[in-house]
């Protein structure tokens, strides 16, 4: 999850989506998920290049589309604002205030505690819920009670088989539009994987077969 967050940071996105999770999984050393991805020619560098390509094509939002850069465009330095309020009120109070303010809006943002220092004013929307739900189902079907990276990979791959927006509420669609994401069309994960000549469904069954062989 932290690796996914880092990928989102690298692309200067205001959300963490399955496409970031995929790059994160490929980076996770010593994991079966990374090994399978690497063997299929989907190493971290290939996937990162794939993400950059999707940004260039306008399928993923461009790097200016994050709070800090947008505020900079109207002359506000978010980092300074954050430093000022944190000095006066303390980090905890700022985090609480952000949470309260967001809970009144339809935009849900979360903070991942793996960044340090964590920045309460710049949380990210989490768009990986469906992929993680599917990951849980995959682990259940294998009779396991814990979700390992390879299950997350299965979840991400299964999520990517459906077009963008599958099973989303109206509010979730609004969040996607706000973040500059396309409301429909094939999932970016599918595009990145197929760009390198791998079939999505085949990769999913390959991971599944590998897991069955291991248990």
């Amino acid at each position: 999850m932290c690796l996914a967050y880092e990928e989102s940071e690298r692309l200067r996105h205001d959300y963490v989506g399955p496409e970031h999770a995929l790059v994160g999984l490929a980076q996770q050393e010593d994991s079966r998920a990374a090994a399978i991805l690497g063997a299929s020619g989907l190493g971290p560098d290939v996937l990162r290049a794939g993400m950059d390509h999707l940004v260039a094509q306008g399928i993923l939002p461009g790097p200016w589309r994050n709070k800090a850069d947008l505020l900079q465009s109207v002359g506000i330095d978010l980092a300074s604002v954050q430093q000022a309020v944190e000095e006066s009120f303390g980090m905890e109070a700022v985090l609480t205030a952000s949470r309260n303010a967001r809970s009144r809006s339809w935009l849900r943002e979360d903070w991942i505690m793996c960044t340090s220092p964590i920045s309460p004013l710049s949380g990210k929307a989490m768009l990986v819920k469906r992929a993680f739900q599917l990951a849980g189902q995959e682990a259940d079907e294998l009779g396991l009670h814990e979700i390992r990276p390879e299950h997350v990979l299965l979840g991400v791959l299964r999520d990517a088989q459906d077009p963008v927006g599958t099973g989303l509420s109206r509010r979730a669609r609004r969040v996607r539009a706000y973040l500059g994401l396309h409301p429909r069309g094939p999932s970016p994960v599918r595009l990145a994987i197929e760009a390198s000549g791998t079939n999505l469904a085949a990769l999913h069954s390959h991971v599944l077969a590998d897991l069955h062989a291991a248990t």
Binding site: W64, R65, K67, L70, L71, S73, V74, I76, L78, V81, V85, F89, A93, V94, T96, A97, S98, N100, A101, R102, R104, S105, L107, L121, Y178, G180
Partner: peptide, 24 residues
């Protein structure tokens, strides 16, 4: 495209600052 998104980001920031000040 940029201008409107910037306003939205600004509004988000104002909401947080307001909550912080009212709480205080």
């Amino acid at each position: 495209e940029v201008g409107l998104a910037a306003v939205a980001a600004l509004r988000g920031l104002v909401d947080v600052l307001e909550a912080l000040q009212v709480e205080n």
